[in-house]
Design a protein around this nucleic acid. Sequence first.
DNA 1: TGCAATGATTGCTATTAGGCAATGATGGGT
DNA 2: ACCCATCATTGCCTAATAGCAATCATTGCA
Lengths: 163, 163
Amino acid sequence: MTSGNADSDDPTDDDPTDAALLAVARAMMAVSLRAAVTLPAGISPIQLRALTVLSGLGQTNLADLGAALGMSPSSTSRLCDRLVAGGLVERRTSPHTRREVAVRLSGEGTRLLAGYDGHRLAELRAVLDSFGPRRRQEVLGALRDFGAAARAADIAAGDPRVR
Amino acid sequence: MTSGNADSDDPTDDDPTDAALLAVARAMMAVSLRAAVTLPAGISPIQLRALTVLSGLGQTNLADLGAALGMSPSSTSRLCDRLVAGGLVERRTSPHTRREVAVRLSGEGTRLLAGYDGHRLAELRAVLDSFGPRRRQEVLGALRDFGAAARAADIAAGDPRVR
DNA sequence: TGCAATGATTGCTATTAGGCAATGATGGGT
DNA sequence: ACCCATCATTGCCTAATAGCAATCATTGCA
């Protein structure tokens, strides 16, 4: 009722800038969701997120992984149990400190993430290819800049969550 | 170094187009994730997704909602139980068919989604504002076009999931 | 050496998620 | 009027998520 949008409660349809930003955000979420359901069964969204975070962290201990995921150490340990059981990550005692644990993506985990990204890319490239050659280059340049700016903002904010 | 990504297994860093697309997708995921954790406690990711889908559907029955979410009718009913208990959706017998149920966002559910989108927009606008006025307009135009093209592709694919 | 802090795991519990099957209620078609 | 299909709910089950508290091992420091 803020305005006459018959099929949505979108509170921002009074601002075209907001509408464009949200549209892209929703489109990206939709693409990622569709890619996620194509994953081999048994991979929950939380597990996929853990794999993604782990991919960004490279190799860490459980405490850091838990902090990056925003969950408690015990939950992190259990989550790793399942991921190790699924062969997606490797967990062994750290070579440097025997009380820490080195967690890392396994080859299969890496492959799974690659498939996930590949699926997302297939859709995104299809969208990009719907433009003419000239406009495609412009849009791509804008996306590249926007992605870089967003990443810079993340790092400036110091948020360890999604790196 | 084009591919010297020491801390990542990114399988696409050999293609700058893919890298740009994935960077934007990841940035949008990160923004949405950060917005999600600011929600009042007790709202799980699945519940948030149900609210989003419900927002797009407007008013539906349980079967359609379940189909849009890709889950069984029983799971959908239980999910609605929790959402109704939380005051986020309204469920009443449909005015037209007494065997169906009309599910709709409540005022509080609408407000919650508005807050979620508001949080996402705050971040996205900040990213956009990091550009100069001229470039900002170009980027915004590209985002608008990309979002529109993605939506068109979704509809063409007939995917009811994320509408 | 002794002790406190750190890192990880485990026992326990609660909640959520998700499905299968059965049941009840309702509407449409013959 | 009767039967069947559809819609929703509920009982029952399994698994995943998540935290608290306790425990054990290890490291660093006094």
